[in-house]
């Protein structure tokens, strides 16, 4: 962190938020027998895997986890050309399932719009729900999250950076001033 940046979540806060979301997912879906978790590349995948572990601890049920690459579904190819594509990997049948899309940050809503289109091309889930660690506002589409770790008012100049141990070496959420 440089001066002007601030940490809004540490590892413990992140753990507690994900524990609560896991409970909420179980409660909302009356158990998790029909639930599949799908993480949006890259950090959403780690959020999904952690929720899977927490749900396993609580319910002793192993929810399947898939990985979603939304590159081909983005609407900003003209303004943000050539993101690297890494591929989608969903090994379970999503037809009829309650799919929990997982991502680190909910911002404009465009990523999750793309993610819903991508999921639907793999089958017809019974429901699609959305879990995110941080909701930073500034929606450009009529989209909201079903499960939120923390809502954080931000300015458009700021950048929210979610760090996860698996990718970044520690767990933390920071706001960087623009």
């Amino acid at each position: 962190m440089t001066s002007g940046d601030s940490q809004i979540m540490d590892a413990a806060a992140m753990r507690r938020a994900l524990t609560r979301i896991a409970h909420e997912i179980i409660e909302r879906n009356r158990g998790v027998e029909n639930v599949g978790l799908v993480g949006v590349r890259t950090r959403g995948i780690h959020i999904a895997k952690r929720l899977q572990a927490k749900i396993r601890d609580i319910e002793q049920v192993e929810c399947p986890v898939g990985e979603l690459d939304i590159t081909f579904y983005r609407d900003d190819i003209s303004t943000n050309p050539h993101p690297q594509v890494a591929g989608t990997d969903i090994q379970f049948d999503i037809n009829g399932k309650d799919i929990i899309l997982c991502d680190d940050v909910l911002f404009t809503g465009r990523s999750i719009r793309a993610a819903m289109d991508a999921v639907i091309d793999y089958g017809r889930p019974k429901t699609i729900q959305f879990a995110c660690l941080i909701d930073r506002g500034h929606r450009e589409l009529p989209i909201r999250a079903d499960f939120v770790g923390k809502s954080v008012p931000t300015s458009l100049k700021e950048k929210v950076s979610v760090r996860v141990n698996e990718e970044d070496g520690n767990d933390a959420v920071e706001i960087k001033r623009g």
């Binding site: 081909f72 579904y73 594509v85 890494a86 591929g87 989608t88 289109d117 091309d121 793999y122």
Partner: peptide, 16 residues
């Protein structure tokens, strides 16, 4: 490989 995956799906089309 990512492009090849699209051809393996039931819906063989992405809006890219």
């Amino acid at each position: 490989a990512t492009y090849a995956d699209v051809s393996e799906r039931v819906i063989k089309k992405v809006p890219a």
